[in-house]
Amino acid sequence: MANTKEYIRNRAGSNISKIVIDRDLCIGAASCLAVSGDTYSLDNENKAVVNGADAADDATLIMSAESCPTKAIFLFDKAGQQIFPK
């Protein structure tokens, strides 16, 4: 992954410890914001950024990643394994 940005997550009880956004893939469709406006926003380059990595529960986070039309959101568990996309 070339142009990526990583966001560390420390939410209590969560199995997801890292959110990664591939900025080359992101097209700013903003479907992630629609699922969780507390987790994501867009920057002025029209790319998704995470400003609340701990805001949403795991199910919501997975839904937000599933909603992305370019599969630009990657989720990792505490062991460093990629859990989405599968």
Binding site: G28, L33, G37, S41, L42, D43, N44, E45
Partner: peptide, 12 residues
Amino acid sequence: VNRTGEMATISK
């Protein structure tokens, strides 16, 4: 135009 950073706040 070139202000998409404000989109999330405006929708709220």
